[in-house]
Design a protein around this nucleic acid. Structure first.
Lengths: 162, 162
DNA sequence: GGGAAGGTTGTTATAACATAACAGCGCCAT
DNA sequence: ATGGCGCTGTTATGTTATAACAACCTTCCC
């Protein structure tokens, strides 16, 4: 059990970010097409905004962007689009920051885990197993439905600087 | 590594709750005494309020209680006392609920993990290791300082009812 | 004793995050 | 054509959190 290799968290390492954005958009578009989901202009634009950066954006940050583009100016607009993206696994909520990030593994079923840099705010997304917690839950007769795993610390860049 | 036995999460199982409260208060008092921490009336009372229930209380829930007792009526009073308790490991913040619980293992150095029942709100606290996340972090050159691990689901009682 | 320093509480004001509730509109299936 | 549904637009409000400063008290040093 759980002998799968750990892998590097997506988002923190150097990468071709334009390709990163394009790939994610492409996957999400396909997924919506095959699953009959309605990727409306607002929803698509919110996803694009999240994809621009591997940091957590607050709903009001997103809303500001939308408003500047004439796509909606009231909080529910942003919260609803973000809700859609989160519900379908295209984005994740970062509890520790009251914010949202685009999913780094869209279209793949996964329990996300996050590495959040407290200095630069960048966020890496790893796929993680929580075998030990599950065992502990079993012992208590607890049925886990959803797991939030967020680690805060310093990313490789910020470690060097500090 | 990590072959330690998982153990049942504290707080969810049947237990003598008066003893649970008394023990925790006792440990916190001793710890404050030996570490020169100032467990003022407000701080102590907030801890007692948290200890009454194994559910997450919001800062404003706590504040309401304090106000009723003449111990303070403005948000900073509650947030400051909660901050003190969290800073010294006598309480934990539950990110997924914007709330706080008394620590179930005060005085022991530990990374907490929580089992949160979405129906009754009760919270179990387990000690957990996050070896796989740590490996993933290492691969990214990320230095983890703090980990939030919260599992939401159904506790043993609520599983039966549903 | 006088007075500076540090820590805690008291208070005002406001910032930041989130949702309830309802109105209107377009699509499309019966 | 019309009724249902999903999405957007809007008002209003609810909830969570903190900045900034004033007042007070203890401690410690001169």
């Amino acid at each position: 059990m759980s002998e799968r290799k750990a892998e590097q968290a997506a988002g923190l390492a150097r990468h071709d970010h334009s390709a990163c954005i394009a790939d994610a958009l492409d996957v999400v578009e396909r997924t919506c097409a095959t699953e009959g989901l309605n990727l409306t202009p607002v929803r698509r634009r919110v996803l694009e905004i999240l994809l621009e950066t591997h940091t957590a954006l607050g709903a009001y940050d997103v809303l500001e962007r939308l408003a500047a583009e004439g796509l909606g100016s009231k909080p529910p607009i942003a919260y609803r689009a973000l809700g859609f993206l989160v519900d379908h696994g295209f984005a994740h909520r970062i509890e520790g920051r009251n914010g949202f990030v685009a999913c780094a593994h869209p279209g793949e079923r996964h329990e996300p885990a996050f590495l959040i840099c407290r200095t630069c705010g960048r966020i890496g997304e790893a796929r993680i197993e929580t075998a030990e917690l599950d065992r502990s839950a079993d012992l208590s007769g607890f049925e886990v439905e959803r797991t939030v795993l967020e680690a805060e610390g310093l990313c490789h860049r910020c470690v060097k600087v500090s």
